[in-house]
Write a protein that binds this DNA or RNA. Structure first.
Length: 208
DNA sequence: GTCCCTCTGGGACTGCTTCT
DNA sequence: AGAAGCAGTCCCAGAGGGAC
């Protein structure tokens, strides 16, 4: 069977730009310039013969065609990501976690995570910050004092503590299975673990 | 002046085709 | 099978337009 497909790079540019409704933010996520994203989208529109965005002043708006197209394309990319992660042998999926310098890794009980998720290879880089995340040196980041950042999904780790540790992942990969697994693992940790960094760790031993 | 998108020209890279 | 040439693609920098 032969598939009639538009360029996948152009589809990806469309998907990200549609999520952000901004070429600039899309470019930030894809690590290219806004001009590159704009060209990809324009080329896609030309190829399809359908206008996907309405260009307003300082704002992108999805046309009806774009709105109809986006969920299908997003679902397609999600399926590809899922299929790829299922295809890889155990441990072949490498999740690179960046952690700010004052974070106590013993809070995370990483050895237990590795034991529970043998299919995910976990590598920790400390210290690491947003710079490492933007450069792609890490896949997700535990950062302090970075509540919101365009193009990235930011979630509080220690909810209600009043202290500022955040889990940050690029919007485009925030729903990847391995990142979802780690996020769920983090949420399932006991509250004392999540707060231990700021009280002083009382976990026995270092298993990280 | 600032912000965001578009356009243009050019360099770098990729992949296909042809030749040995 | 491997090397070389070439065309197409991709992306960037910089300039410009338009609205605030």
């Amino acid at each position: 069977m032969t598939y009639t497909l538009p360029p996948l790079n152009a589809l990806r540019a469309f998907e990200v730009a549609a999520r952000h409704l901004s070429f600039k933010l899309a470019a930030h996520e894809l690590h290219v310039t806004p001009a590159a994203v704009g060209q990809q989208v324009k080329a896609l529109e030309a190829r399809l013969g359908v206008q996907l965005f309405e260009r307003l002043h300082k704002q992108l708006v999805l046309t009806a065609a774009g709105q109809a197209y986006l969920p299908e394309i997003s679902e397609g990319f999600r399926r590809i990501a899922d299929a790829t992660s299922q295809l890889k042998p155990a441990g072949a999926v490498l999740l690179q976690l960046g952690v700010h310098g004052s974070f106590d890794l013993r809070r995370l009980e990483l050895a237990e995570f590795r034991g529970a998720h043998a299919d995910i290879g976990l590598r920790v880089l400390q210290p690491a910050g947003l710079h490492e995340l933007i450069e792609g040196k890490v896949d997700l980041l535990i950062a302090r004092g970075l509540g919101h950042h365009p193009g990235y999904r930011c979630e509080r780790i220690n909810e209600g503590s009043g202290l500022g540790d955040w889990l940050i992942a690029p919007e485009g990969t925030a729903d990847c299975p391995e990142i979802v697994s780690f996020r769920n693992w983090l949420r399932a940790l006991p509250a004392e673990n999540q707060l231990a960094n700021h009280r002083r760790p009382r976990l026995v031993g270092s298993r990280g």
